[in-house]
Each structure stands twice: as C-alpha cells, then as structure tokens.
Design a protein around this nucleic acid. Structure first.
Length: 227
DNA sequence: GGATGATCATAC
DNA sequence: GTATGATCATCC
C-alpha cells in the first residue's frame, strides 16, 4: 500500500495557490483519507482538526512556533468555517493578548499586525449538522488588509491596549472593539496569567486572545466573492 | 440565531 | 503557562 508523504513546504506563492486550488471542492474526509489523516466523528475533542489537516496537506511548517505557517512566504493560513449562505460561523482567533510590559507597545510592532499582514483564507462549509468528514473545502484566497481595514484593526488594538495598560483588563469583554475583540483563550477558567491591575499592580487573570469579529471576516469574504 | 465566555488537544 | 490549531456551550 502506498500513500503520499508529507508535502514539502511550498517554495512560491504560485505553488501554494496551485495546491489550494487543487483541494477546492473536496470533502475533508476525502482529503484525510488520501493522506491517512485521522477523521474524528465530531470536533468536540478535536477542535483544531481542520486547521491541522489543511496545514499538513499544504505543507505548512508543523509545530507550535510563533511563526507564520509558511515562513518563507510570510503567509499565515486561516481556515474559516462558513454557513450554507457563505457567512462565517465563528470568530477568527488571531493571537494571545499581551497583558504586561506594554510601555513600548505600538500597533506597528504588535503581534496582531504581524499575524494579519498576509493571510491565506480557506473557507470550509462547516455547518454543525454536517459531519466533519463531509464538510467541503472552498476556494482559498490571499488577503492583505486594505488601508481602511488596517485602520479599523489599529483603532481597536490601540483602544484595547490602552485599557490593558491602565489596569482595566477585567473590564474588557467581547463587546469591545469594532472589528476585533478580546475573549478568553485558555485551557479552562482556572488558568491564570499576569496582568496589570489597579494602580499598576500585578494581578492574576484569565489569559485572553484577540479574535476577529464575524462581520469583519464576512466583509473579507464579500470583497473576495462579491456576496 | 448570533455573540460572548469557556473549553479541548498537543508540543514544549 | 504559552503557543499552535480552533470550536463548543450558553446566554441574550
């Protein structure tokens, strides 16, 4: 029995996009079977399965290093679950939210800006009533923030970072931000990390992450597909 | 139905 | 705990 080995990292954007185009229209089950990748019955305990499968197939660097998925190309891969009508079903995780040592933090050197500089979006028809292996891969495309989109992201980042720096992290909830929000990003509610508290003290709080709101990613999909 | 808060697996 | 990959579960 023969089966494909792990794809090598793409050496050019054109090669990467050729691979992306080649898997459009396939189900995740077909792709997983081809690469002898496990296929869970549901994503309850495999929430990262889709992303990890796609990473493997496209030749993204494995591991949990804080680098873009395609370091040579400077491209970050994001799968995005969409509904039957093509709308995002979930927010999109961007990065951990830094909660301390913010005195020299700027939008320009922020991890959010770096992460979103160049993204390969890959929509997956991923309604919950479709089994994971029956979900269908859509047309992936490259995106870089427009001037307006970057301005929106920057505004949110600056507002939220200022609140954190002023010791107001525990005042922040998912309602803050026009296009990007801060929500918990932790193993469970008992996980704690350092943050700036009242009067500049150090407090313990739930680790947070930056997430793109669905109306923002929906706009990206609309600009691409003209919905 | 959609958004916010909570959580799961894994590597190190 | 932090970082990777996110979706689940609940509340409005």
């Amino acid at each position: 029995m023969t089966f494909p080995s792990k794809p090598t990292p793409p050496t050019s954007i054109a090669q990467l996009m050729t691979r992306v185009d080649a898997i459009a229209g396939l189900t995740l089950g077909e792709l997983a079977a081809h690469y002898h990748f496990k296929t869970p019955k549901d994503l309850l305990k495999d929430k990262g399965w889709i992303g990890q499968l796609i990473e493997w197939v496209l030749g993204a660097s494995a591991g949990s290093r804080p680098e873009p998925d395609f370091p040579e190309l400077g491209i970050e891969l994001k799968t995005i679950p969409i509904s039957y009508t093509g709308k995002p079903l979930e927010t999109t995780y961007v990065s951990v939210t830094p909660l301390i040592n913010l005195q020299n933090a700027t939008w320009q050197n922020s991890v959010v800006k770096k992460k979103l500089n160049h993204v390969l979006w890959l929509p997956i028809l991923s309604e919950r009533d479709i089994r994971p292996d029956q979900r269908i891969i859509g047309s992936g495309f490259l995106w870089q923030p427009t001037a307006l989109q970057e301005a929106q992201l920057r505004q949110d980042w600056e507002e939220l970072t200022e609140m954190i720096a002023l010791g107001e992290i525990d005042k922040i909830n998912g309602k803050y931000g026009q296009v990007m929000q801060i929500r918990p990003k932790a193993a469970n509610a008992k996980a704690l990390t350092n943050a700036i508290g009242p009067n500049g003290s150090i407090i313990q709080t739930l680790p947070r992450g930056y997430y793109l709101k669905t109306h923002f990613t929906q706009a990206i999909l609309s600009q691409q597909f003209g919905l």
